[in-house]
Amino acid sequence: MRSDGQAQQGDRPSSRLTSAYWRGLSFLPYQAGDHAEVARMLDLAEDSAVQAVNEAEPGQLLVALENLHPVLETRGRAAWDAGELESAESYYR
């Protein structure tokens, strides 16, 4: 990573970007009604978001937390649409 925060060629994506990738990609199986695949992808998104929070330097912690929040909201909505009401409620607590 360069000092200005931009990735260099060959750097792996940050956990925060990986989380956003999986969350965005989960929209495709969601549209197809494949709730199991949505849950699998959102598991990956949540794991990456939590990793980003754990790895965040003090100046980046707020950004990492702001990424985690929509992942949990998306998980709640996806669980609700899958009919998993108790699971959905747990993401809003």
Rank of each mutant, 00 (worst) to 15 (best):
W80C: 06
Y91F: 15
Y21L: 12
H35W: 15
R93W: 10
Q9W: 12
V38G: 01
W22A: 03
S90E: 02
T74G: 01
G83H: 08
G10Y: 12
R12F: 15
L72K: 09
L68Q: 01
A49E: 06
E37L: 14
V53T: 07
E37P: 06
E89N: 08
E55C: 01
V71Q: 02
L28R: 08
Q51C: 02
D4F: 10
P70I: 11
V63W: 09
V53S: 00
S15P: 02
R23M: 15
T18W: 08
L72C: 11
A64T: 01
L28Q: 12
L28I: 15
S48I: 03
A56L: 01
G59P: 00
G10L: 12
A32V: 09
E86G: 08
G5Q: 04
R16H: 06
G24A: 05
Y91V: 07
N67S: 10
P13H: 04
G24Y: 12
R75N: 10
W80D: 13
V50M: 04
L25D: 01
G76E: 03
M41S: 04
S19W: 13
W80N: 06
Y30C: 02
Y92Q: 04
A39Y: 13
E89S: 09
V38N: 02
W80R: 05
D11C: 02
L85I: 13
P70S: 00
M1P: 05
R16F: 14
D4L: 13
P13R: 02
W22C: 02
L72H: 08
A79F: 11
E37H: 11
L17A: 11
E86V: 14
L61S: 00
R75K: 15
Q60N: 07
E73M: 15
Q6P: 03
A79T: 02
A64H: 01
P29L: 03
A7R: 13
S90T: 11
P58A: 07
G76W: 12
Q51E: 14
D43E: 14
A56P: 02
A56S: 06
Q9M: 13
R2L: 14
D4Y: 04
R23E: 05
V38K: 00
E57W: 07
Y91D: 04
G59D: 10
Q9T: 09
V53P: 00
A79Q: 03
G76R: 06
R40W: 07
R93A: 10
R40A: 14
L44K: 14
Q9L: 12
D81C: 11
L62Y: 15
G10N: 04
E86N: 08
V63I: 10
N67I: 03
T74S: 09
A36T: 15
H35T: 14
F27I: 13
Y30S: 13
T18R: 05
